[in-house]
Amino acid sequence: MRTDEKLHRPAEYPTTRDLPRMSRTRLWLFGSTLAVYVAIVVGVVTSSKLVTLDWQVMLWRPYKQWPQIHAALDYFVVLGQRGPTAVMVAAWLGWRAWRQRSLHPMLALGASLLLLNITVGAVKYGLGRLGPHYATAVGSPELFAGGDIFPSGHTANAVVTWGVLAYLATTPRVRRWASVIAALLALGVGMTTIYLGTHWVSDVLLGWAAGLLVLLALPWFEPAMAWAEDFLVAAWHRLRHGSGLAPVPARALGQRPGLVTQRASQAGGQPALEAVGAATGGHTAAMPHAPGRPPAARHERTPVTPTGSRRPPAERPVRPIPLAHQQVRGRGAAGS
């Protein structure tokens, strides 16, 4: 089956251009998560007790308390790294998109990662917080020092990347199980970064909130995904069937197009223009005369000449008539 035919099959997840209405539960979750997000940022900026907790956990050094699990958690934290997780999830959703004949799964992943990079990246580089391993003063929030640690990108990425699988689940039961698994993975990745000493506690808390905000806001971008899918499918069809891009049949290569001739149609006696020749495979395409005008008589039609050079043909030399032929002609003229 061709790819353009697959893209025209009905999708399992119908998309819409109308802005979806959020349920009260989702709106309440979005508002409360946003409030927590702002509270964490304010708590770090004002050097509140949240910063004190950060330093207490950092000075306790969890990786020294349980060194036996250090090697295993070094591999586990990769489940929150943007590159490997994006490749794994994109491979699965790419197969889903092919099965469903829809680009919606891939567009949902792309939109969620784009939102995550914009929102998390802006706060990271705007606040410039240093990580625990690069801290300079005990009790300081380490802000505006050229760092990029707040919020935790590993944690936010784990929430979004694995949460998208739950967002795209087909049944409520699968969605519940996928949500539980995604929450456990995000929780484990965040706690692992604290254990390894690569993030403050407040970094992880803000990463969880940032990722959850992206997932809760994703339905608002469904109209943009539907528009993008329509645009990509139309662009694919223009690429495959557009002018000069469609494959040329092998039988038509090397053959000259036929001439345009005039022939009266057998139904009603009305004239029609037909294109005949090797390029059309012997089939003719009739073009009826313009409506409202009587068909032109045969002597009034414009003669159609073949395209090519308009140079007059070279003059042929005059061949002398043999004497026997002249005598025959003379006798015929005399007898008449």
Rank of each mutant, 00 (worst) to 15 (best):
W55G: 03
H237M: 10
E229K: 00
A252T: 12
A72D: 15
V87W: 14
G292M: 10
A111P: 04
I194K: 00
D203I: 00
R251L: 14
S265Q: 06
L107K: 01
L19Y: 13
V51L: 10
F221M: 03
A314S: 02
T161K: 02
R310V: 10
L206E: 06
E315N: 05
G110H: 08
T52V: 12
W236K: 02
P219W: 14
H237G: 02
W60V: 08
P62V: 06
D148W: 12
V89P: 02
G335C: 10
S336Y: 10
I149V: 15
E274Y: 11
W66Y: 14
P219N: 08
S140H: 06
P151V: 08
T119W: 14
G146K: 04
A97P: 03
A11N: 08
F221P: 00
P172D: 10
A275F: 15
W200N: 00
G147L: 05
P10L: 08
G277A: 09
L253H: 08
W95M: 14
V318P: 02
R238P: 01
V38S: 01
A39E: 07
A169D: 01
R61G: 05
S112C: 14
R26G: 08
M88Y: 10
S47D: 12
A158H: 05
T155R: 01
A272V: 11
R96D: 14
G242H: 07
G153S: 14
L143P: 00
A183S: 08
V304T: 01
T284H: 12
G121F: 09
S152H: 07
A122M: 12
R329F: 15
T192H: 02
L113P: 03
A314N: 00
M106S: 06
H289L: 14
S336D: 10
D74S: 13
I181Q: 04
A285I: 12
M88E: 04
A111K: 00
W28K: 01
G282E: 06
L259T: 08
R99Q: 14
P257S: 05
Q266F: 11
T198A: 11
W66I: 09
L103P: 01
M58A: 15
F231D: 09
G332T: 09
E315M: 10
G146M: 09
L232N: 01
T171R: 12
L114M: 15
L273H: 01
R26V: 11
V42Q: 01
G139M: 06
K64Q: 15
T33Q: 02
R173C: 04
G121D: 11
Q65F: 11
A91E: 12
V214C: 09
H289R: 09
Q266A: 13
R240M: 15
G254R: 08
T155K: 03
G146C: 09
V260M: 07
D4H: 06
R310C: 05
R2Q: 09
A234T: 07
A178L: 15
V233H: 02
K6Q: 04
T3M: 14
Q327W: 13
D18H: 13
F231P: 00
T15Y: 11
S309D: 12
I194F: 03
E222D: 14
T25V: 13
L213Q: 07
E274A: 06
A324Y: 08
W236T: 03
T302L: 14
L29E: 09
